[in-house]
Structure formats: structure tokens, C-alpha cells
């Protein structure tokens, strides 16, 4: 895994939309220590789909999961890919981060590039209230059908608590 070349190809492909990168190098093994890498890049939302398209062109990525982080004014989305799987020490985690303002929580789907992303995208729709534009199926996945709460949004904790209380009461439990 040539980290510099990987970052350089994304910089070249995305231009000004490439906002930065970070490499975390870790030493593993106790007898003959080796190196493994966690790689991060941050991109503008408008070029996010291009970034994933570039990743799919240059590599055969695996999407582990998408994580979110409510930062107050914005929600950060971290797409945790891995690249280079298939050989010993060949793989690194490669996270593409993009920031969505709370005033416009939308992002294009990447299911056209990697169909397996759908599960994680649907989870972000329900848990953060994000509009994933173009996703083939946007129904609730883990939350009950019809539930409109977004439990991982810190600004909506009051609504979440109220709804959870209502559901618990509906189930006939006391707490």
C-alpha cells in the first residue's frame, strides 16, 4: 500500500474539493513487528460521490460501515472503507469524511457504485434524518415502521425521549 500515491490520486481527481488527509500508522506483532494503516480523507459534500467513484475505479473497496457524528451545526459522515484486502498486510482502512450542515442534511447515494452500501445508508436516514438522494429503498431498517424519531441527533434528544416513553407506555410496561 503506497499511502502517498493513494492520497495524491484523490487530490488530483478532486482538486479543491479535497480538504485534507490523515494517516495513522500502527505497529502490530510481537515477534516480527509490521505496520498497518488507518487512512482518512475529508472531502466537500458536492464532490463526495466523485470521491467514491474514484475509489471504485482505482481499487476494489469494501464498505465496512458508515458512522455519523452530530457536531452541533453539522453532522459528519464517515464512510469506513477498506482497500487492498486479499493479501497479508495488504489492507488499510480508508475513511472518507464529509460534513453536512443541519440546514441541508442531504447526500447522494453511493448504491449506484457499491450496492452493499444500502444497509448503512438506510440506517443513517432513520438515525440522523439524512436525505440520501437516489437511494432505491429509504424505508426504516432498524426502527419500527412509521417511526419518525432520529435517536442519534443530539438536538432532538427531547423528542426521542418523548417518543420512547410513549412506545414503552404503549407496550404496557411501567418504565
Amino acid at each position: 500500500m503506497n499511502v502517498e500515491n493513494l492520497f495524491a490520486s484523490f487530490k488530483h481527481a478532486l482538486g479543491g474539493a479535497y480538504l485534507g488527509d490523515r494517516t495513522i500508522e500502527r505497529t502490530v506483532g510481537t515477534i516480527d513487528p509490521g505496520k498497518v494503516y488507518d487512512l482518512w480523507i475529508t472531502v466537500e459534500r458536492d464532490s463526495f460521490h466523485n470521491a467514491v467513484a474514484h475509489l471504485c475505479t482505482e481499487y476494489t473497496p469494501h464498505l465496512s460501515v458508515i458512522s455519523g457524528d452530530d457536531l452541533g451545526e453539522n453532522v459528519a459522515l464517515n464512510y469506513h472503507f477498506t482497500v487492498g484486502w486479499g493479501e497479508r498486510y495488504g489492507e488499510a482502512t480508508f475513511t472518507i469524511r464529509t460534513m453536512l450542515p443541519k440546514s441541508d442534511l442531504s447526500i447522494p447515494t453511493i448504491t449506484d457504485l457499491l450496492a452493499g452500501a444500502q444497509t448503512s445508508e438506510r440506517e443513517k436516514i432513520e438515525f440522523y434524518g439524512i436525505d440520501v438522494v437516489g437511494i432505491p429503498d429509504s424505508r426504516n431498517l432498524f426502527l419500527p415502521e412509521g417511526a419518525t424519531i432520529h435517536p442519534w441527533r443530539k438536538d432532538l434528544e427531547e423528542e426521542t425521549a418523548k417518543e420512547v416513553k410513549r412506545m414503552v407506555k404503549w407496550e404496557g410496561r411501567n418504565e
Partner: peptide
């Protein structure tokens, strides 16, 4: 394409295993 993992992926011939690809703990030895 569907990001399958574990024996489900390996049964299809995908040589994907975190212990091999990105070693950790004693697997690195």
C-alpha cells in the same frame, strides 16, 4: 458488490479475512 464478509464471502472465493489482510493481536505473529 454487496460487501459480504466472513465465511459467507469466503465461500464465494473472496479471500477476505481481517486476520490475514490487516493483522492484529497474535495473528500478526
Amino acid at each position: 458488490e454487496l460487501c459480504a464478509v466472513g465465511p459467507t464471502a469466503r465461500a464465494s472465493g473472496v479471500k477476505k479475512d481481517v486476520r490475514q489482510d490487516m493483522p492484529y493481536l497474535a495473528y500478526a505473529d
